[in-house]
Simulated assay, not measured.
Amino acid sequence: MIALDLIGIGTGNPEHVTLAAIRAMAEADLILLPRKGDEKTDLADLRRQVCATHLPDLARVVEFDLPVRDASGGYIDGVNDWHDAIAQAWKAQIDAHLPQGGRVALLVWGDPSLYDSTLRIAARLGLTPRVVPGVTSLSVLTAAHAIPLNDLGAPVVITTGRQLRENGWPEGADAVAVMLDQGGAFTHVAPEGVKIWWGAYLGMAHEALIAGPLAEVADQILTTRAELRALHGWIMDIYLLRR
């Protein structure tokens, strides 16, 4: 029998890993670390660093190559096919390393419940995981800028760059937290009266932060984002908009 743990590990800083996460890592018979290709070797390195920091040995840690999503067709169909392929990649590793059963763990950026698909992928294998919550990029963003997420009694909408680009400012929201933006979705928002708090590589050594009126800092964010992506080969960023 296979038991699965999905362990939130924060945004890349080993100090953000909770005591519950460390305990779950120690209990696992197998920890699977996905590799996402040469351009994202930093992400694999950070997972290795988390394991090396909190485990006495790495004998139970196994790396595997994550399937690549085909972006040539429709978005939803492409993602579903990709998730099917990832589920099969998990199964192949579990079958190879835990043929008699045991507890397997995957380390999830941020928290497994917030814009992450590991829970949906686990369901494809008929597995009901134990979820260990983690520090989210959203909480690290607000901490880095020393701001509250919401104004007093005011609502916040958490959405994606795709949604903001295609549908504009969510109705009824005073503040909008935007994740999974391929870049510049905030340029589709009328900037008058809007302030933005932006962060990239949150919790990591090369964390970058910019804040200010959207009309004044939008170009700076776009330029900085492009420079950082070129420098590191990848970028993970998030921002909060408030009007």
Rank of each mutant, 00 (worst) to 15 (best):
R162A: 02
Q163Y: 09
Q163W: 00
Q163H: 13
Q163K: 14
L164S: 11
L164H: 06
L164P: 12
R165W: 15
E166Q: 15
E166Y: 05
E166A: 12
E166G: 02
N167K: 15
G168N: 05
W169N: 07
W169I: 01
P170I: 00
G172N: 09
G172R: 05
G172K: 03
A173G: 12
A173N: 10
A173I: 12
D174P: 03
D174K: 15
D174M: 13
A175P: 07
A175W: 03
V176Y: 07
V176L: 10
V176T: 12
A177W: 01
A177K: 12
V178Y: 04
V178T: 00
M179K: 11
M179I: 06
M179C: 09
L180M: 15
D181W: 02
D181S: 05
D181F: 02
Q182L: 06
Q182I: 00
Q182N: 14
Q182E: 15
G183C: 03
G183L: 05
G183P: 09
G183N: 07
G184M: 10
G184D: 08
A185G: 07
A185K: 07
A185E: 07
A185Y: 06
F186R: 13
F186S: 00
F186I: 01
T187G: 06
T187P: 00
H188W: 12
V189A: 08
V189Q: 09
V189M: 07
V189W: 03
A190W: 00
A190P: 11
A190Q: 13
A190G: 02
P191K: 02
P191E: 11
P191Y: 04
P191N: 01
E192F: 10
E192M: 10
E192P: 03
G193H: 07
G193A: 04
G193K: 14
V194P: 01
V194H: 09
V194R: 14
V194S: 08
V194N: 04
K195G: 08
K195D: 12
K195P: 01
K195N: 07
I196C: 00
I196D: 06
I196W: 00
W197M: 01
W197E: 05
W197A: 04
W197L: 03
W198G: 04
W198Q: 11
W198N: 04
W198Y: 13
W198D: 13
G199W: 02
G199R: 09
A200T: 10
A200L: 08
A200Q: 10
A200K: 08
A200F: 05
Y201P: 06
Y201M: 14
Y201Q: 13
Y201F: 15
L202K: 00
L202Q: 06
L202Y: 03
L202F: 06
G203L: 02
G203Q: 05
M204A: 09
A205H: 15
A205W: 04
A205Q: 10
H206Y: 11
H206L: 04
H206E: 11
E207D: 12
E207K: 12
A208D: 12
L209D: 10
G212T: 13
G212W: 10
P213H: 14
P213F: 12
P213D: 13
L214I: 01
L214D: 10
L214W: 09
L214K: 08
A215C: 07
A215P: 01
A215T: 14
E216A: 15
E216L: 06
E216N: 11
E216T: 14
